[in-house]
Design a protein around this nucleic acid. Sequence first.
DNA 1: CGTTAGTTTGACCTGTATCAAAGCAGGTGG
DNA 2: CCACCTGCTTTGATACAGGTCAAACTAACG
Lengths: 269, 269
Amino acid sequence: MRSGEIARTEVVNLSQHDLSARDLVLRRLEALTGRPVEGLEDWTLLDGPRRKVDAAANVLCDGTHRADAAVIMAGVAADVRILPDGRRQILGLRLPGDIIQGEAHDRVAALTPMELADAQPLVRELSERGDLRSSLGRAWMAAMRAEQAMLRDQIVRLGRLSAYERLAHLMLEIHERLFHVGLATASSFHMPLRQEMIADLLGLSVVHVSRTTQQLKREHLVQTRGSYVTLLDRDRLMEVASYASRFAAPPPRLQPNRIAAERRSFYGG
Amino acid sequence: MRSGEIARTEVVNLSQHDLSARDLVLRRLEALTGRPVEGLEDWTLLDGPRRKVDAAANVLCDGTHRADAAVIMAGVAADVRILPDGRRQILGLRLPGDIIQGEAHDRVAALTPMELADAQPLVRELSERGDLRSSLGRAWMAAMRAEQAMLRDQIVRLGRLSAYERLAHLMLEIHERLFHVGLATASSFHMPLRQEMIADLLGLSVVHVSRTTQQLKREHLVQTRGSYVTLLDRDRLMEVASYASRFAAPPPRLQPNRIAAERRSFYGG
DNA sequence: CGTTAGTTTGACCTGTATCAAAGCAGGTGG
DNA sequence: CCACCTGCTTTGATACAGGTCAAACTAACG
């Protein structure tokens, strides 16, 4: 939380990385717990064949196939509930490193093209023979708690934040989550979501998402280029959205002059 | 789900029962899983001294004391998040039979006077030495999933339901949860919540909760007497609110003539 | 280029918030 | 037993955030 931290300058490909499924899961778990996680070392179960899924295809249908579980290697999915009259609400996003599983009542849908690694053996191992005292078992519980924390955040977003605040809050959440699996720089990330999806996530209309996004841009809090987003003033965004980090070690704060540098490198040329 | 089920006529005290902490927890777990739960038989750990808490006193403060855990024997508590500017959002209710624990970022507050039984030994046993394959372990997981399902419901309520629908949905949730721990008849229950709390739960203003409640009454969907609520037409409420049960065996449906009988017995004299 | 999917703009409408005042009920003390 | 608080709910008047509809704009793509 020190504000003098140095933004990492390491070059990252914001839409894809080259980690193995094991390393990706590990990276996420360690970011969540803030300590090394053991017990996944000789875990080859995750290195099976990868599945590619088209956008808009359901990844796991309506919870009847509770069976399969997968690690997201690339792409964005969402837990979606559809009401009888067609209204849709996205309960939460599923980003790379997350493990998805069917839930009764809801379905998991691919919002972008995706790449998945089979995680069934891992999940089965953990939930059936899993030892909660082990390093891995604890990390697993931490991940469940983190998932719950995100649901809670979503409740507050929908219940008590204005459209403007909701959008700011969402940007911060996505950025933070992507950052911790190596898919964001200190202030930029790739977010290939149509406004319709953001609307379903934030309980707003598409039109209003459009207007609100523009307001955030007008006020120089965020900037976009295609589907790349840059948070121009994360501190102020956090204040605006009453955002609190869910991670053991949140992304670094930028120093004022570094903000300028970042901005230049992405949008000036 | 058969609509011919007989409403149980057993007399219940809607604001309190006389179960032991063990039986109460058991009852809830069995309602959730729909099957008998073993492993709690000789569990005396729950039968320690009971603690009484006043309304408005915080039951467990802001997650710093992650330590203690308790079974709610009587009363209503809530997970609350308070934003820096004072806005409040209740994330979910905690009713008798629920086990409460502090969560980072949020606090658990008593909404009514409460009676608690210490559950720390049980929780520690389960989360540290717990065997997920055992009957109790599975029930435990089921309870966690149920808790998550309620958070998801809350998201949909706030994101996509109108005030009218939200209230209907909430009434159904509370009724169902109370019913399964023996604190509701087939259509009535005791709900000593001020409208301010309902407002914080549903993301509305107090004034609008008042107006909306009256609309539900005007349309003969619910009735109230003091803090006792009767659902006059649960089928229609479920339809209005797009409500789906989270329990293995949901409360019985009333036959038309039984509805009349219920109504008479509670409000006619 | 024309086509299509997505975003933006403008005009207008509505659900819910806000503010302020009035009603009500349960408890206390005279 | 009444008069008075005090805390909650209800009512009315008014304001605004965000929804809806329809048309114009943009950009990717064959």
